[in-house]
Nucleic acid binder design. Structure first.
Lengths: 190, 190
DNA sequence: TCAAAAACTTGAACTACTTCAAGAAATTCA
DNA sequence: TGAATTTCTTGAAGTAGTTCAAGTTTTTGA
């Protein structure tokens, strides 16, 4: 079974066999147990994570002390704190596994040299980032224009399998409403 | 005076003189009058816009018929609908000048061939997109954790000159509250 | 320069959500 | 397996915002 990251990359660019060798020599899968953190607030994030299997989340602890999930990362998604990664500053976020997961962790220095050795890889990341940014623009649109109930139904319609996969209270905070309100939406009590 | 886009690119990567020539032959500045649209909902967005001078915004018309500003683009920012651009699908957004502006419009086909001719340009866009995505992650954090009043003060503290530059009602909708509420915040009546 | 248009303000009534508290159900793992 | 933990539910009370409508101020452009 081929490395799933290489498979993902090939969907966007073509790779020479020698490039694949280089990549494979740098990549290894690490297992992250459910609830384990790969980044905590205040740490500098020097790593990009590609989710091979399982599910990760990015969250914060808000001023009231409650956890708030800002992003999920499932199979074939990259997850990191891009600002901390890019500017080498302490992170605002936690990154945590919400299922037993497998990720490919690429250290910034390793990635920098890979990008120099395989220039075409810049193209891959450019495309992936543009797609992610586009998705984020749509997310802002949904947050701004839909009611809590509409956001829940919209998400549920588009990602029904995913809704089964994560605790409701995490999905509620991702959609920016309270767990209690989620319960009432689901019960039709709104 | 050098093309401000080339100046911007040079902050991230180095360019051969021949690359600069290639670039300059492809780029021209076009003037957009205040209130003029460069993209409307339903159109396919085939162009990326680099703001040389002035200010653009991305907005939608929400289900109640009101305009809602989702993003601003000032000098040295790229603005486009990335999802429409990337997937060649109709846009959800409007792109409009809110000051008399000058932009460099790069057509997708032109950009694609530039990226092939100047591979290093992929790196530039990859970096710019990663920075933008990081900024978007922070924006989600602020939207999720701060009250309307906190968002206003936070924005005002960080971008005081910009606050002077755009109509308050546009800023209010960008910060996700009503123009009337903005008025009350400013008057200290909350 | 001044009429029209755009932007801002105000208060009163309303509402979509939050918070709290407590119990019930489901899941985990020793 | 069953005790502990995590997750979900419910209702009552509260609140951070919206909406509406009308008036005022500022800006624009012929």
């Amino acid at each position: 079974m081929q490395n799933s990251l290489i498979h993902h990359i090939k969907q966007f660019i073509s790779l020479e066999p020698s490039d694949i060798d280089k990549l494979e020599s740098c990549l290894e899968i690490s297992k992250i147990k459910k609830k384990e953190h790969i980044l905590k607030e205040g740490q500098i994030c020097n790593t990009m994570y590609f989710v091979v299997k399982g599910c990760m989340r990015q969250y914060i602890i808000n001023p009231k002390g409650a956890e708030q999930t800002l992003q999920f990362g499932i199979e074939n998604w990259w997850i990191t704190d891009y600002l901390s990664y890019h500017n080498h500053i302490p992170s605002n976020f936690y990154l945590q596994a919400i299922e037993n997961s497998e990720v490919i962790a690429i250290d910034k220095t390793v990635l920098e040299s890979l990008l120099i050795e395989i220039p075409n890889l810049e193209r891959y990341f450019r495309i992936v980032m543009q797609k992610s940014f586009g998705a984020m623009q749509m997310r802002i649109k949904f947050l701004f224009t839909m009611s809590a109930e509409e956001r829940y139904h919209h998400f549920n319609d588009h990602f029904p399998e995913f809704v089964q996969r994560v605790p409701q209270y995490m999905l509620a905070s991702y959609l920016d409403f309270s767990a209690e309100f989620m319960s009432k939406i689901r019960a039709g009590k709104v």
